[in-house]
């Protein structure tokens, strides 16, 4: 397997070359684990899809009034939060934890800097991380977490770049 294929959808990680050999026991093991978790992934994805608006609205409503003063930054930060959640959900569905990171890298840190959304981002992400385990089962949240964290890291990298 090439290092690049590590950051791909589960089915793309398989060496589909029957002229060479059958899939290895390890590949079959990964595939089996994915398939047996698939129903749970789809359920969690459906729920996130259904709850998105209400969940994010709740996070926004709870923001301290001071953070709501700059409407431009607030709206941009909300959009970023939605994007992060959607990419994390998709990444979970297809077992590709770095999907969001790959698509948002470069871009996300730039808009965070342009719209100065750091403070709101931090608050929104923190409450998102608190709310999600309450909405999802433990196993569903465990499936979502790697993709979510990997996308959220992009926001922190921005903060480090600014303070560093």
């Amino acid at each position: 397997m090439t290092p690049h294929s590590l950051s791909q959808h589960i089915l793309r990680k398989l060496e589909l070359q029957p002229d060479k050999s059958y899939l290895t026991p390890q590949e079959l093991g990964n595939l089996g684990r994915y398939v047996s978790s698939l129903a749970d992934r789809v359920r969690a994805y459906r729920q996130l899809r259904e709850w998105e608006v209400n969940l994010i609205q709740e996070l926004v409503d709870r923001l301290p009034p001071k953070l709501k003063e700059n409407t431009g930054a607030l709206e941009q930060s909300i959009k970023q939060t939605i994007l992060i959640l959607r990419y994390a959900a998709l990444g979970m569905l297809v077992d590709d934890a770095t999907l969001g990171r790959r698509r948002l890298e470069g871009w996300l840190p730039t808009v965070v800097m342009v719209y100065q959304t750091q403070a709101i981002d931090e608050q929104l992400q923190r409450s998102l991380n608190q709310q999600l385990p309450r909405l999802l089962t433990d196993s569903q949240f465990a499936l979502l977490k790697p993709a979510l964290e990997s996308a959220q890291q992009l926001l922190q990298e921005q903060q480090q770049a600014q303070t560093g």
Binding site: I82, R103, E105
Partner: peptide, 20 residues
């Protein structure tokens, strides 16, 4: 700010040129 309004015009734009 209503989240539903932000999503209404479908313009959650991001990294247009992302390679994949």
């Amino acid at each position: 700010v209503l989240v539903a309004d932000l999503l209404a015009d479908n313009n959650l734009t991001a990294n247009y040129f992302a390679s994949d």
